[in-house]
């Protein structure tokens, strides 16, 4: 009996260690899956878009993923209307 008990003592610690490691791995994966979206994006509201990965002076117009980016050249309204009126004027003159 003593020998049998002794064998169990030798076998159990590695088995327990495997169990703990396996459980820990599963739990960490679960935690990571839940927490990742929560910590994936966090930006300081300061009017500086460097933390988005955006810095036009370095020609970086695209935000770093997973943020989405859409852009075009927003023109000053008066320049746009001036161009339209000029074109309309030229059309009516011809």
């Amino acid at each position: 009996m003593i020998g049998w008990k002794g064998n169990m003592t030798e076998l159990n610690p590695p088995l327990s260690l495997c169990g703990v490691l396996l459980s820990l791995s599963i739990s960490i994966l679960l935690l990571a899956a839940v927490i990742t979206p929560a910590v994936a994006a966090e930006y300081t509201i300061d009017g500086d878009l460097d933390d988005w990965g955006v810095n036009p002076s370095n020609n970086s117009w695209d935000a770093a993923p997973p943020a989405l980016s859409v852009y075009e050249n927003w023109r000053p309204v008066d320049l746009l209307l001036l161009a339209q009126i000029t074109i309309r004027g030229l059309n009516s003159a011809t």
């Binding site: 979206p37 988005w52 955006v54 935000a63 943020a67 859409v70 023109r75």
Partner: peptide, 18 residues
């Protein structure tokens, strides 16, 4: 315009001449 999902918040950023 930029948009990102961040846990309890959604973040937006817009560059404009207005």
């Amino acid at each position: 315009m930029y948009a990102a999902d961040g846990g309890a918040y959604i973040y937006f950023a817009i560059i404009t001449s207005m």
